[in-house]
Amino acid sequence: MITCPESTRLLSRGMDARLSLFKRLALRSHLRICPACRRCDEQFRFLRSTMQRWRA
């Protein structure tokens, strides 16, 4: 099982590159049990949408 720091690093990495199957599975099982990291995932995505919105 991966930790929250590891999970958030994978969340960020996954926004810039495709994660390996192993990493995707590890991340998915962590997110399933961790509401805080799910929230972080949403907030990271929100940051991306915000930047797109800013330049539009």
């Binding site: 099982m1 930790t3 929250c4 720091p5 961790c34 805080a36 990291c37 929230r39 972080c40 907030q43």
Partner: peptide
């Protein structure tokens, strides 16, 4: 488990 301490 190194859980979040500050946020989100």
């Amino acid at each position: 488990e190194r859980a979040w301490e500050n946020g989100p």
